[in-house]
């Protein structure tokens, strides 16, 4: 009896330590850039069988399998855009090679993939500093959609700066821009979108962009008659509650 309780306790302790290790591994590197089609992190972590067939089918040797000791969940495929970016093959061989569907087989258009999102360090970007560069814009495979060049006022003269801006609705996170960036350390980098992307919230309305939906959504609602609704503004002050 005692022995079986001891055995169960040992198994439970072992199981907890084991679960803790897995938890650590699963969140080992939130900045790892995954192959195309690995959109859902939980699904990718669960399904990737670490066979490396995506790595072998990549014609540019972009993908690597994380060896033990790397700051990426062990054995999973990732790439470092500054070394070798994803060149966005039209037939997406890496996704086709995946036997488990950790790389989503429903991805048919490589421009729909979201491996990451390019972000610009405007303090170190040559264009933002006022020089003419625009290399990232010219190299970008989703030409003129993922990165556009915009006019930006230049305070020291009347001449405008021409600065790159990234658009998340088109950027695939392939990292060709990061590879091409001429600064010593890339001023444009690919990171997982969830690390940098905010969320506005549904209650904000941009009136100048979408008038019709605003007028519909913001029809004044019928004010309820019952007095249990907290009085607002002046009403509150006039009720003598103070």
């Amino acid at each position: 009896m005692t022995r079986s309780v001891q055995g169960a306790a040992l198994a439970a302790t072992g199981g907890l330590v084991w679960s803790y290790l897995l938890q650590q591994q699963a969140h080992a590197s939130p900045s790892a850039i995954r192959p195309p089609g690995a959109h859902d992190t939980d699904g990718f972590n669960a399904k990737c069988i670490k066979c490396g067939q995506c790595v072998r089918d990549c014609p540019y040797d972009t993908l690597k399998l994380a060896p033990a000791g790397e700051a990426v969940p062990i054995g999973t495929p990732y790439f470092t855009p500054r070394d070798v970016p994803c060149y966005m093959c039209e037939d997406i061989p890496c996704v086709k090679a995946c036997p488990t569907g950790a790389l989503d087989h429903s991805l048919e258009d490589i421009e729909e993939s979201r491996m990451g999102l390019a972000v610009i360090d405007v303090e170190n970007c040559l264009s933002w500093l006022g020089l003419r560069c625009e290399i990232c814009h010219r190299e970008c495979p989703v030409q003129n959609k993922a990165i556009t060049i915009e006019h930006h006022p230049r305070k020291i003269s009347k001449h405008a700066k021409f600065v790159p801006l990234v658009h998340s609705d088109a950027c695939t996170g392939c990292g060709v821009c990061e590879k091409a960036c001429p600064t010593d350390k890339a001023a444009i980098r690919v990171v997982p979108p969830e690390l940098v992307q905010g969320e506005v919230g549904e209650h904000y309305r941009l009136g100048w962009k979408d008038k019709s939906s605003i007028t519909q959504d913001f029809k004044p609602t019928q004010r309820p008659d019952s007095s249990d609704v907290a009085p607002t503004g002046l009403d509150y002050l006039n009720q003598g509650g103070l």
């Binding site: 290790l21 591994q25 969940p73 054995g75």
Partner: peptide, 28 residues
């Protein structure tokens, strides 16, 4: 089943060994 990841695959020294023999050495 509980953690949602293949529990042994993620720590398996067997997988580590053949993976690193085939795909390049790490700390395995």
């Amino acid at each position: 089943a509980i953690m949602g990841v293949a529990a042994f695959e993620w720590i398996s020294p067997i997988s580590m060994f053949h993976r690193e023999l085939i795909f390049g050495l790490g700390m395995g």
